[in-house]
Design a protein around this nucleic acid. Structure first.
Length: 500
RNA sequence: GGGCCGGUAGCUCAGGCGGUAGAGCAUUUGCCUUUUAAGCAAAGGGUCGCGGGUUCGAGUCCCGCCCGGCUCACCA
């Protein structure tokens, strides 16, 4: 018998023992008086003489450590990421409860009732007079000092990561705060949250390869959306002038430190504004989300301080010049010159060449939060042209920590120009660009009913979370990142074997 | 998909020029009524990722495969 099976049998054998003591191994409702964090907040700073046995508390949590000292012992219970010590002595609890205490395994979930006091070493603790067994762990917990280090196990068994690694738990709590802050800020500005199709007959709103699925009754293939954009803009046509959606997009691309095939995007659209308006809104949103999520607009990321209260702005041309590495720094006239651009890139049009040069030269250097604006029309099939420079569009992206975290533009609302853009994309598709945009006639029809001038923006929630939690891989901000299936686990067989 | 690195006890990790597999935590037993990485004494626990090859002998060398990490290419 392997050790793991031996441990499983030992713990399985405790179940009837727990029952003999009058407890339920998989217990029931337990009404605590305080959560453990509430106790620490309320009494963490109280001196020993300010605590009284008259102040009774009931707490619940998972056993993290046990220090048994014969006829007494200590344990730490964890709840909501914080821990409180309990002290159990044989003359303070019933004989059955003391035997229950001696039988506890690290990882069990229990309730404890008693009064608060400070130990000789000054630690706030519960002097227990009653225990309640709430749930039995059958498998052993990760090591108490190092936690769970194995990255594969951390992703496959995220619950263990959350139990063993407080810093991991903190990341996901912060992520939740980020999303709550974005929602609150948009709601305050009159945006309403909507839900648009995840399964789409045509995929659009971005350039990416899609996942394909099938609906049996209609017998049609559908695409998991690569972006909600075209649906949200249909809603703007319909008079929902400020809409947003926070939800998953799916792109059938490779995995990497900033790529997961499903990722969370905030997209919002505001009628009667343009990309300049969105730049100002973005600056406010990012500053406030940092304040709400981590308490400061300045955060540390990979050893650098990022200041979300100070969003720099460069045009794409300016950035290509500004961040040019080494000698031969080009001039603004160079990056306006089609021939110069084509000489410095293997792309086939000046616009694509500029975007290519920008990405190679500048992107990884955009560590401080930065807006890059004015994009070539070829890379932006849904954005409005700049009136004075129709080869460019009114579009910007937000960069921070060397990653793109947002993308926004003045929405193209001229159906005739939109038709030409789609046709331009179709031509690129004919030339082999698999990711070029599809023709979406229903969207064109919607534009024919007049979409107000509008600005729209997408913000990558996962990447924003990485920046605000100083996390260097997207898998650490997604609870269950995509992994290959692990194959046979065997726990069902092992549980079945326990009963025979 | 390419390159590099890794997979050893439930967990965290050593080790290895081919010769019976190690520590700490956890577990079991004993002692211990203010400990806190509790302590002391003892014990149990391993198909060294999987499969093949070389060899008297493979955890170690070779080949293939699986899983993961980093990285390059594509992508937000």
């Amino acid at each position: 018998m392997s050790l793991e099976d031996e441990l499983l049998r030992q713990r399985w054998a405790r179940i009837p023992e727990i029952e003999k003591l009058g407890h339920h191994p998989f217990g029931k409702r337990y009404d605590f008086t305080h959560t453990i964090p509430e106790i620490l907040t309320a009494y963490g700073s109280k001196a020993a003489e300010e605590l009284s046995p008259q102040l009774r508390v009931r707490i619940a949590g998972r056993v993290k450590t046990i220090r048994s000292k014969g006829k007494a012992g200590f344990a730490h219970l964890a709840q909501n990421g914080e821990q409180l010590q309990v002290y159990v002595r044989s003359d303070a609890v019933s004989p059955n409860d003391f035997r229950l205490f001696q039988m506890l395994d690290i990882g069990d979930i229990i309730g404890a009732e008693g009064y608060l006091f400070r130990t000789r070493t000054g630690e706030l603790s519960v002097h227990v007079d009653r225990l309640e067994f709430l749930s039995k762990t059958l498998l052993s917990m990760p090591e108490k000092w190092h936690g769970l280090e194995d990255v594969e196990t951390r992703y496959r068994q995220r619950y263990l990561d959350l139990i063993a690694n407080p810093e991991s738990r903190k990341v996901f709590v912060t992520r939740s705060r980020i999303i709550a802050s974005l929602r609150r800020q948009l709601e305050e500005r009159g945006f309403i949250e909507v839900e648009t199709p995840m399964m789409q007959p045509l995929y659009g709103g971005a350039t990416a390869r899609p996942f394909i699925t099938h609906h049996n009754t209609l017998d049609i293939d559908l695409y998991l959306r690569i972006a909600p954009e075209l649906y949200l803009k249909r809603l703007v046509v319909g008079g929902l002038e400020r809409v947003y959606e926070i939800n998953r997009n799916f792109r059938n691309e490779g995995l990497g430190f900033k790529y997961n095939p499903e990722f969370t995007m905030l997209e919002f659209y505001q009628a009667y504004t343009d990309y300049r308006g969105l730049m100002d809104l973005t600056a406010e949103l990012l500053k406030q989300v940092a304040l709400d999520a981590v308490g400061s607009a300045e955060v540390e990321y990979e050893g650098r301080r990022l200041d979300f209260a100070n969003l720099r702005r460069f045009s794409m041309r300016e950035a290509a010049v500004e961040f040019w590495p080494g000698a031969d720094k080009p001039t603004l006239d160079n990056v306006r010159d089609p021939e110069w651009l084509l000489r410095h890139s293997d792309k086939s049009t000046p616009g694509e060449a500029l975007a290519d040069i920008f990405e190679r030269v500048a992107e990884s250097q955009l560590v401080q939060p930065t807006i890059i604006y004015d994009y070539p029309v070829e890379t932006s099939p849904l954005s409005k042209n700049k009136p004075d420079d129709p080869a460019f569009v009114e579009r910007f992206e937000v960069y921070a920590g060397g990653m793109e975290i947002g993308n926004a533009y003045t929405e193209l609302n001229d159906p005739q120009e939109q038709r030409r853009r789609f046709e331009m994309q179709l031509a690129m598709r004919e030339k082999g660009d698999e990711e070029a945009h599809q023709m979406d006639e229903d969207y064109l029809r919607a534009l024919c009913y007049a979409m107000p001038p509008a600005g729209g923006e997408g913000i990558g929630v996962d990447r924003l979370t990485m920046l605000l939690t100083n996390t260097h891989t997207i898998r650490d901000v997604i609870l269950f990142p995509l992994l290959r299936p692990e194959g046979e686990i065997g726990i069902a067989d092992r549980l079945r074997a326990l009963e025979t």
